[in-house]
Design a protein around this nucleic acid. Structure first.
Ligand SMILES: [Mn+2]
Ligand SMILES: [Mn+2]
Ligand SMILES: [Zn+2]
Ligand SMILES: [Zn+2]
Lengths: 140, 140
DNA sequence: CTGATAACTGGAATAATTCTTGATATCGGC
DNA sequence: GCCGATATCAAGAATTATTCCAGTTATCAG
């Protein structure tokens, strides 16, 4: 069974509004890039991948479009140390495993039924809004 | 029982070498700041706290001293999103809970006996070198 | 069609951090 | 204690990712 992750996503399949955000031509192209090639690209990666199709697109627009989609919960922003932010269309709760040998970033989920709060010693009364985790290592 | 975390640490108690790194006067002062006030300060916070005692100290030196101590495993560098790096002398495996109401950052440990690898669906053959996690929320 | 509003562009500005270059300090051997 | 080698430090310039700004363009409501 072939993964759908890397199939081309025609513009027609991206609606002109998602979660209250108007999906302009620029946003549709950017979102399609994220869906087609789920390697957690930086804003600049997205810009380089898109500029053949939209030659007038500016990098500032890539930043503001990505930011708008993050704020509307359409995509997620992922940071590794001090490196440039990366972007991910996977909205399921997940973290990231960074293979330092290949540079590839893998999505990682909790085993089913497990929540991070259950395995941590939290300060009493803590209400968790958001969880992030990152692993670094290699595949043997 | 009173926590030892915020007791003053006299210069005499910091050895002149740790993990192979020569602890110069600047590094001792910086390290003492981190030990005395464990609130995960930024490089600039450290700089402001120290410049009365060492008026010639430059911010660049604070950065290089912190970096040297991180590379020698004496302290840890902690990043929250795109904010400035923060520094932590707690070497035990732990993550961070960021209280968005107060801005206070709390150290968080796993419940005893639990390892992140045990609760995650990792890619087969993954060898984990390093784990980081961050929670955001508030204390009710 | 028309004015209001949202989005976009390109270049300037910003903030954290790193780099560079020239002093200072420290070390081991004499 | 002096001396060259090496490590560290200071100050300012440079870098990088990102955001801001001001002017233009696109979209929407009536
Ligand atoms: Mn980026
Ligand atoms: Mn900092
Ligand atoms: Zn992801
Ligand atoms: Zn900590």
């Amino acid at each position: 069974m072939v993964s759908k992750a890397f199939q081309p996503v025609p513009a027609s399949e991206i609606p002109d509004e998602i979660s209250g955000l108007r999906m302009t031509r620029q946003r549709q192209h950017i979102y399609r890039i994220l869906l087609q090639h789920r390697d957690h690209p930086t804003a600049n990666d997205v810009f380089m991948r898109i500029k053949d199709t939209l030659p007038n697109l500016s990098l500032a627009t890539v930043y503001t479009c990505l930011d708008a989609m993050v704020k509307h919960g359409i995509i997620r922003q992922v940071n590794f140390d001090r490196g440039p932010s990366r972007f991910c269309p996977n909205l399921a709760e997940h973290g990231h495993f960074h293979d330092v040998t290949t540079g590839i970033i893998h999505d990682v989920k909790f085993k089913s039924g497990i929540h991070l709060e259950d395995v941590l010693d939290l300060p009493p009364g803590a209400i968790i809004k958001n969880v992030e985790f990152t692993l670094r290592g290699q595949l043997s």
